[in-house]
């Protein structure tokens, strides 16, 4: 009996919490229903895992925000590196830097986040700006500006992914991300020479 009376409020709280974060979730699933209802969908697992990793890293004790982001970035780096190795196994060699960036913006991004980068800009001196107008992980959070600073932690892992992928094709770089308006993310890649 005691157990039951304890269980109920906890579950209720979780439920409320859940609705808040995922208010857009079910809708997007219904949209895709016909497309992928029977197919295996590691994508969902991946998204949830990614969120869980962010939450875990940022809630561990004795760790500052920056340190946590660094950790996430490093995990992303590892993943990006091994992923690009598998991806480019049968690919032709890239001719130049721009080719590589195009690869990141198209194939790599489609594979990881299901869409292309919306806009790629460069100063032709090793700085590239990649705009994603609706970044997947932020898409499901509100478009309100209220949480912009909170959301910085969701882009640390992707930054690492990009840096790792570039390292995998032989370019060392520095990647940072900037959120001004939800869910728009600007990734800035500086190639180190």
């Amino acid at each position: 009996m005691h157990q039951h009376s304890i269980v109920a409020p906890i579950v209720r709280f979780r439920f409320v919490n859940f609705l808040f974060i995922f208010s857009n979730f079910t809708r997007s699933i219904n949209k895709n229903k016909n497309k992928s209802s029977t197919m295996a969908d590691a994508e969902t697992m991946f998204d949830l895992l990614q969120m869980e990793i962010v939450k875990f890293t940022h809630s561990s004790k004795n760790i500052g925000k920056n340190e946590a982001n660094t950790k996430l970035e490093q995990m992303g780096y590892r993943v990006g590196q091994s992923l690009v190795e598998k991806l480019t196994k049968d690919a032709a060699r890239f001719n130049n830097e721009l080719d590589m960036m195009k690869f990141i913006c198209k194939d790599f991004w489609i594979m990881v986040y299901g869409k292309q980068i919306d806009n790629l800009r460069t100063n032709h001196q090793g700085v590239y700006v990649l705009n994603d107008n609706s970044f997947k992980l932020l898409n499901r959070i509100t478009t309100n500006r209220q949480f912009v600073s909170e959301c910085q932690k969701y882009v640390a892992f992707p930054c690492g992914l990009v840096r790792g992928a570039l390292a995998g094709v032989g370019v060392s770089s520095f990647v940072s991300a900037d959120i001004k308006e939800m869910p728009l993310v600007k990734f800035q890649v500086e190639i180190q020479r």
Partner: peptide
């Protein structure tokens, strides 16, 4: 382009992405 062909197998690759990410998490 020959480069393109190998990326079309999206579902499989997104599974690999999950596997690799999980691996990075465990090692961390």
């Amino acid at each position: 382009m020959s480069k393109q062909a190998s990326f079309r197998d999206n579902k499989k690759v997104s599974g690999e992405l999950f596997t690799l990410t999980y691996g990075a998490l465990v090692s961390q």
